[in-house]
Amino acid sequence: MGILIYAESENGKFKKCALELASYGRAIANQLGVELIAASFNHSEYQTLGTYGVERVIQISDPKLEKFTAERYAANLASVVKENGVKLVLLSSSANAKYLAPLLAVSISAGYASNVVGLPESMDPLSIKRSCFTNKAFNTCVLDNELNIISLSNNSFGLKEEPKEIISETKSDVSSETNFVLEKVERASGQITIADAEIVVSGGRGLKGPENWHLIEDLASTLGAATACSKPVSDMGWRPHSEHVGQTGKPVASNLYIAIGVSGAIQHLAGINSSKVKLVINIDPEAPFFKAADYGVVGDAFEVVPELIEKLKAFKNS
């Protein structure tokens, strides 16, 4: 019996969600008294995983695995599960992890729960809390199976160091040839993504037009934050669809969510509900968003935001 995490890396470094998963896995491994194993692809600098409690890392290396493909990665993870008697697989909520999870679940005939928000409530049978109705509610999910997969909502557990001696082994690729060709990957370089961000700065229709988005971008870069927007803003083409957050867009689970000129419609709130602290800047004191906020400023974005940027810069320099 063991617990396996899929440790995702990017540009030669483990992603924050991989370290969060290690921390989460360590807590469960301690409870059960079992080994915490990580699988990583084409990555050799594994010591950081040990800092967060991983005891053994299985590195699967092959030029064919250089770029992520769900089918190949799932096939390799399935093989690690079978060879190591793994009973519980932990995945993050990154786009890639959620892509491969259902493929892995079928291939190892495991139960699967996504959007898990905390430690198991019981281990036998495995019972966990997950969010549903797009963050409007939670449900307790019971997974009474030999083998289970959990995908943890990003930023819901946090990082906890618990250093372990870590050993590393290598494994070769077991995936088979497919006709699936990854032709091109376009990445917006240097930008923080909504999924990984600790702070998200979001603009709504109150910003009047795309020409004013420098306010959102400047505030975001001052805070090291990702930028986001409401649905109409992306529908009108002011911002790319990938920035649309909410029930029909992306979920946001950042530590701080700053909403500027966003009214706070129920569909918008649904997607950002699991952010820990919400700051709302809106000219209308009656804007519904204030009811869902932790901090609120009634004011004109065109006056408040420049001042906020300036004062934050001073604060950061002090």
Binding site: A105, A110, G111, Y112, A113, S127, C132, N135, K136, A137, F138, N139, T140, C141, V142, L143, D144, N145, N273, V280, F290, K291, A292, A293, D294, Y295, G296, V297, V298, G299, D300, E303, V304
Partner: peptide, 22 residues
């Protein structure tokens, strides 16, 4: 089936918003 739902719950009610003057 591989999973069942044993219960639902709503998010805990939140504290009041703190308003700051502009």
């Amino acid at each position: 089936i591989k999973s069942t739902i044993s219960k639902f719950e709503k998010p805990a009610p939140r504290g009041a918003v703190k308003m700051v003057d502009s």
